[in-house]
């Protein structure tokens, strides 16, 4: 498994993962997510387009991260178009919770919409 992380426009982190995500490899993915969260980034796009296999350990990490960014007023979306990986999201009932989209542009648009809604609902002064 390989993970590449890049930050875009100081608000969105894109984690592109390839390979197999299981109990052996998922901790590395967790470390990359933790590093992103430690930087204070609250909007995360996880691109699983090149992931061939996923199990409950990786799902648990994604669910935990989604909760974390939501608590910070951010959001997480997942890009996935492989049938066998989508099936795991479907069966576990996590597709909606994790904002799973089949196209990267779709998930990017979703996060941008959520962010715009969050900004608009905040106090205009942005202060306390």
């Amino acid at each position: 498994m390989k993970v590449q992380t890049k930050t875009e426009d100081d608000w969105l982190a894109v984690l592109s993962v390839s390979g197999e995500m299981d109990a052996f490899t998922a901790p590395e993915f967790r470390n990359c997510l933790d590093e992103t969260l430690e930087k204070g980034i609250a909007w995360i796009l996880v691109d699983l387009g090149e992931v061939e296999y996923i199990d409950s350990v990786a799902l648990g990490i994604l669910i935990g991260s989604a909760k974390c960014v939501t608590e910070r007023g951010g959001g997480l979306a997942v890009v996935c178009n492989r049938t066998n990986v989508l099936r795991v999201f479907d069966i576990s009932g996590t597709r909606e919770l994790l904002n799973v989209c089949q196209a990267e542009s779709e998930s990017r648009r979703l996060l941008e919409q959520q962010r715009t809604a969050t900004v608009n609902s905040s106090a205009p002064e942005g202060g306390q």
Binding site: S56, G60, I63, I91, S92, L97
Partner: peptide
């Protein structure tokens, strides 16, 4: 479906 906090493995 189990709680999302744990027990996913056996459910799957």
């Amino acid at each position: 479906p189990p709680s999302l906090e744990g027990g996913l493995g056996l459910y799957l």
